[in-house]
């Protein structure tokens, strides 16, 4: 494997959890719900995924467990903001705090255990092709799933009736309600989908990216995924492009360290966060566009009056 191939490979594996989490949050936000609990759902997904794989001996069941973990927290969030009309920003923060606490408790038993790794696929001949073989045909299954998910979410949102209804709920919940769309149910499903994706993204970290459990191992990736949704102006395919750009920023630091660039490692570690802030600022400079892109009812409470 050449150095170039190695860089591309690591960028792909760093981008995949960001992409999966961002796609889930994108669907949630398109339905008009802002769930700031991505980081919390992700870390719970990471720990339940790891625990599931350890207890069953199968990384694939671990993947399922990670999605269930994320969905459980998302269900709690959905109940709070949809049934009880709680403040979405505060509830999302609460979800993150609770998720960080729960994951720490659940994960205590698993610290230091060697994990089960989601193996990369190997197709004879194709994977062995020079340069592109490993990158295109030698990734783990979730990498392909994440790309397929981006395409599916895009098709769903813009080419299906259900997707139209979901966007209608996010843009004008009053009108959607009048037209007979079940606003609360649509939003609840969107929130659950977001939770499953965030959980899966966390599971990817503990099953494929670094197969082990480390407390706080999401390290702000959930928040970066949230920023990515804004960065992608709520478009799934743009989210995919953005995820790979951010994946590159995350990975840059490791290669810069390996090359022996004389900069303290903490400065390099800070780069992805600074890049996120920079991306948000550059994007929101064009206020008119920013306002037009975001779902009009994002973060607003809807209580059906009858």
């Amino acid at each position: 494997m050449t150095g170039f191939e190695a860089v591309i490979l690591t960028i792909v594996t760093a981008a995949t959890p960001l992409l999966i989490a961002a796609l889930g949050e994108l669907v949630t936000e398109r339905s008009g719900v802002l769930n700031l609990g991505v980081e919390g759902m992700m870390i719970v997904g990471a720990v339940t995924g790891f625990a599931g794989a350890q207890l069953t001996g199968s990384p694939y069941l671990g993947v399922v467990a990670s999605m269930i973990g994320g969905m459980a927290l998302a269900g709690l969030f959905g109940f709070l903001v949809l049934r009880l009309a709680a403040n979405q920003v505060a509830s999302g923060l609460a979800l993150t705090l609770l998720g960080l606490g729960l994951s720490g408790m659940i994960g205590e038993a698993f610290i230091g255990q060697p994990g089960l790794k989601l193996e990369r696929i190997h197709i004879p001949f194709l994977t062995d092709l020079p340069v592109v073989g490993q990158v295109l045909f030698g990734q783990d299954p979730l990498v392909y799933a994440s790309v397929a998910l981006a395409v599916c979410v895009s098709r769903f949102l813009f080419r299906t009736r259900a997707g139209l209804a979901l966007r209608a709920v996010g843009n004008n919940h009053g009108s959607a309600h009048m037209l007979g769309v079940h606003v609360i149910r649509t939003r609840f499903l969107a929130v659950l989908f977001g939770g499953a994706c965030s959980g899966l993204a966390g599971g990817y970290l503990s099953l494929a990216y670094t197969p082990q459990w480390v407390e706080g191992m999401t390290a702000g990736r959930g928040w970066i995924a949230l920023a990515l949704v804004v960065f992608a102006s709520w478009m799934p395919l743009r989210a995919a492009v953005g995820a790979y750009l951010f994946g590159g920023a995350l990975i840059l630091q490791f290669h810069a360290q390996a090359e022996g660039i004389p900069v303290p490692p903490q400065f390099l570690s800070a780069l992805p966060y600074i890049a996120t802030v920079a991306a948000l600022v550059i994007l929101s400079r064009d206020r008119w566009r920013a306002r037009n892109d975001s779902p009009a009812c994002l973060g607003q409470v809807f209580v059906p009056d009858r």
């Binding site: 702000g220 928040w223 949230l226 800070a270 996120t276 802030v277 948000l280 929101s284 400079r285």
Partner: peptide
């Protein structure tokens, strides 16, 4: 960034937490 460019302070202020912690880490180790 919020008043000048309209960037959401939620994400920017949170991102700066990580930067601040890395700054502290660098100072006390360096």
């Amino acid at each position: 960034f919020r008043v000048r460019f309209g960037s959401s302070e939620i994400l920017t202020s949170l991102m700066l937490v990580y930067v601040a912690q890395l700054l502290l880490d660098w100072l006390v180790r360096g």
